[in-house]
Simulated scan of single mutants.
Amino acid sequence: MATETIKVTVDTVAFAVEQGALEVLLIKRKLEPFKSLWALPGGALEETDETLDQAAARELLEETNVGGVYLEQLYTFGDKGRDPRGRIVTAAYLALLRQEGLELKAGSKARGVAWWKVNELPELAFDHASIISYARQRVKYKLEYSPAAFMLLPEKFTLRDLQSVYEAVLGKAVDNRNFRKKFLNTGVLQELNETSQEGSFRPARLYTFSLEEFEKLPDKPVFMF
Rank of each mutant, 00 (worst) to 15 (best):
A2M: 15
V10Q: 00
F15D: 02
V17P: 03
V17I: 08
Q19W: 05
A21K: 15
E23V: 14
E23K: 15
E23H: 12
L25R: 03
I27N: 01
P33S: 12
W38Q: 03
G43L: 01
A44S: 08
D49F: 03
E50S: 06
A57N: 01
E59A: 02
E62L: 10
N65C: 13
V66I: 13
G68Y: 07
E72G: 00
T76E: 11
K80R: 14
R85E: 07
I88N: 06
I88V: 15
Q99G: 10
G107E: 02
G112D: 13
G112V: 11
V113H: 08
A114D: 08
K117P: 09
L121A: 07
E123Q: 12
F126T: 00
D127L: 14
I131S: 02
I132K: 02
E144T: 15
Y145N: 15
F150M: 11
L152G: 07
L153E: 04
P154W: 11
P154L: 12
E155D: 12
E155L: 12
F157A: 04
L159V: 07
E167M: 10
L170I: 05
L170A: 01
G171K: 09
F179V: 09
K182T: 07
V188S: 04
Q190A: 15
L192H: 05
L192P: 03
N193T: 12
N193K: 15
Q197S: 05
F201E: 05
F201R: 06
R205W: 01
L206W: 04
F209H: 11
F209T: 10
E212R: 13
K216F: 07
K220T: 02
P221N: 06
V222G: 02
V222T: 09
